[in-house]
Design a protein around this nucleic acid. Sequence first.
DNA 1: CTGTTAGCGCTTTCAC
DNA 2: GTGAAAGCGCTAACAG
Lengths: 348, 348
Amino acid sequence: MTKRVTSHDVAKRAGVSRGVVSAVINGTPGIRVSEEKRREVIKAIQELNYSVDAQARSMRTGRSGCIAAYGNLDNPFFLQVLQGAQRACTERGYHLLLYGYNRQESKQALIQLYNQRRIDGLLTKDVTGFADEEWLASVRAAGLPYMSVEGYPEQEEVPSVLLDYGASMDLALDYLYGQTGLPPVYVELYSGSAYAPNWGDRNRRSAYEAWMERKGLVPAIWQQPDHDTDPQAWDEWLGGLPLPSALLTNWSRGGFLIYQAARRLGLSIGKDLYVMAADNTMRANAYMVPPLSSVEIPYVEMGEAAAYRLLDMIEGNHPQAASKIWIPAVLEPRESTLLAGEGGPQES
Amino acid sequence: MTKRVTSHDVAKRAGVSRGVVSAVINGTPGIRVSEEKRREVIKAIQELNYSVDAQARSMRTGRSGCIAAYGNLDNPFFLQVLQGAQRACTERGYHLLLYGYNRQESKQALIQLYNQRRIDGLLTKDVTGFADEEWLASVRAAGLPYMSVEGYPEQEEVPSVLLDYGASMDLALDYLYGQTGLPPVYVELYSGSAYAPNWGDRNRRSAYEAWMERKGLVPAIWQQPDHDTDPQAWDEWLGGLPLPSALLTNWSRGGFLIYQAARRLGLSIGKDLYVMAADNTMRANAYMVPPLSSVEIPYVEMGEAAAYRLLDMIEGNHPQAASKIWIPAVLEPRESTLLAGEGGPQES
DNA sequence: CTGTTAGCGCTTTCAC
DNA sequence: GTGAAAGCGCTAACAG
């Protein structure tokens, strides 16, 4: 193992002192260095193939240059958040550490990471509407710079990036109604055995009701559990609908269930039924047959926004503005809402 | 900002010297410390809420305790690889840094990371059959411990984790044939304008041919480009098939295209056509209607295996065994290959 | 404006 | 078996 090249070596080679080398590399504000010496230093760095030792620098400066992202690694959305965060980190010269739900390694371990000076800040991808006071208390006690994606919608003082679910419903409803002229029926799935909608779904539902009211239409909501689905109930309900009908479901899985029921009943999506989803949890909307229209949550953008804000907090640039960042949903029109004449499937 | 608690403080409080503190924390082999003092130290650590400064430790030891994972953040599979790698890191006390295809920040930057002592090793998720001699040369020159997932299948000396595509085809074909008793037709998609199958697809194809030959069946291969698909060609081909037929496609996207054509022709999957995919690139097989049977690549496991091996290399535990790790594919039977009587959709 | 120097907090060798 | 001390490589404060 050949000895490591240090700033000392560079200084010697360039005929300057180590402080100058450091100043050249870091562009230290208060330090002027003549053009000639600067060139010497750069030349020496290249000739010796010198790289700054990240650990030594971090030790000296007290900054690790890393932030951590924590989330559910089973959830494809988390990858998008990571992508956004990664982009932001690269641009700002930071590094991104990845942590996921693992065994029972609690979130407290993330705070340890900060105490160990391994990270300068933390970003978590939470489930919509998530909030945990105890966790917040730990974060504050540790002084850890922190951003949540999709968490803490109702705690104004907690920095987080949120999607405006109400606006996303309006977007979907305007589109669906504009396409079909049919009063949209809302298909609301819920998880677990009892109906207990999370923050996002509560917003969706009330946005639906408000939208219908504005149009002078009467809300029609069909509510079903996500698990242990009862095909017969779906068939009866769907069979009783006037044809054609326009359906908007809160989760993309609702689209899957509707497609299945339609298949059993011999109904055609895009002719008998127009279907749209208010999210893309399955990440499969584009692959359904026919592809399922939806409004989607731009997780990449959310991750990016969260990371930028977090880095601002770390570097003390945080504009004391509101701590919430609101991101708009994106409309993705696909075939499931195309009228037959518009390039939809030929029903021969 | 209150001053940081150091091992010095702990030592003072416990009435020992700093070396002892370090020995207690790290369980340093060559250093015996009396049970009493050990207890004192642990008590002091807790009372002072002391955490080791990761940077200082790394600086001293020359190990960052981090590895980097690099891959395409647009690709959901990469998340699975990450999940496996993360699991391995957690278990072995390492940390995982995430890097992705970004702007033109070339892979060379990853080698810089090693020169900066920011990482101890690198894992890349490559596309199947990927190989890049120039990159390998850089890696070797830097002495960077390195593992590839799915890359370098034909360079025995490059450590990588690979899927046995031949075996995966046998698995799929045995299942499909066992279910249906029909000679499987192979639907082979390729990307780009000219047919230039990658390593995985070459293996798949020859495995198909060999399997058919073993059964005394005559191979039937329908080859189509993945992009700019020609619906009419698909319709004509599919319409000319005897019914029922059993279809195996190399990519799950082939399933999508088959489903679309079937829909146009009014054919029913699970009755007229049995369909199966040899991978799950779209990550949507389970959400197709009906759900699409497939053999899938256990990327989580591959990521985990790669990370463990990489950590072994870093820590010098690498058993000089073969550098290739072969992982078997996993069969996922779903409705698209169920005979009608077996719980498939009721075709009323 | 440039050079010297004092640590950052830790581990590990070396005396005791 | 235990404690003291020498750095790891860097940056920033301070002299010159």
